[in-house]
Amino acid sequence: MKKILVADDDVHIRTLLRHVLTREGYLVLEAGDGREAAALMKEQTVDLAVVDVMMPHMDGLELCSYIRETYDIPVILLTARQQLSDKEQGYLRGTDDYVTKPFEPEELLFRIKALFRRYSIASDDRIRLNSLVIDRKNYEISDGNDVLLLPVKEFELLAQLAQYPGRLFSRSELIELVWGADYEGDERTVDVHIKRLRQRFSDYQNDFTIRTVRGIGYKVDMVNT
Score class of each variant (00 low, 15 high):
residue 48 L to W: 05
residue 132 L to S: 09
residue 155 F to W: 09
residue 120 S to V: 02
residue 197 L to V: 02
residue 77 L to W: 06
residue 81 R to M: 13
residue 201 F to W: 05
residue 146 D to E: 15
residue 11 V to L: 07
residue 101 K to M: 01
residue 32 G to Q: 12
residue 172 S to L: 09
residue 180 G to E: 04
residue 1 M to Y: 09
residue 160 Q to E: 15
residue 112 I to V: 12
residue 214 R to Y: 12
residue 120 S to W: 00
residue 208 F to N: 03
residue 200 R to A: 14
residue 99 V to L: 12
residue 151 P to Y: 01
residue 181 A to K: 15
residue 123 S to K: 12
residue 18 R to E: 15
residue 119 Y to R: 09
residue 187 E to Y: 03
residue 149 L to G: 02
residue 54 M to D: 12
residue 85 S to F: 07
residue 106 E to Q: 12
residue 111 R to A: 08
residue 133 V to W: 05
residue 115 L to Y: 01
residue 210 I to C: 06
residue 200 R to C: 08
residue 153 K to R: 13
residue 189 T to F: 07
residue 27 L to P: 01
residue 53 V to C: 04
residue 19 H to Y: 08
residue 118 R to V: 14
residue 88 E to K: 03
residue 221 D to R: 08
residue 135 D to Y: 12
residue 170 S to T: 14
residue 72 D to L: 02
residue 6 V to H: 07
residue 25 G to K: 09
residue 162 A to C: 04
residue 149 L to M: 04
residue 142 S to G: 14
residue 123 S to V: 00
residue 102 P to A: 07
residue 206 N to P: 07
residue 183 Y to L: 03
residue 46 V to F: 01
residue 17 L to V: 04
residue 76 I to E: 04
residue 64 C to H: 02
residue 46 V to Y: 05
residue 145 N to E: 13
residue 60 G to S: 02
residue 81 R to W: 02
residue 17 L to S: 06
residue 20 V to H: 03
residue 141 I to W: 06
residue 192 V to K: 15
residue 47 D to T: 02
residue 23 R to L: 07
residue 116 F to W: 11
residue 106 E to F: 11
residue 180 G to Q: 03
residue 84 L to W: 07
residue 222 M to K: 14
residue 190 V to I: 15
residue 110 F to L: 13
residue 148 L to T: 08
residue 170 S to C: 01
residue 181 A to F: 06
residue 225 T to I: 11
residue 136 R to Y: 00
residue 184 E to V: 13
residue 196 R to P: 00
residue 212 T to Q: 11
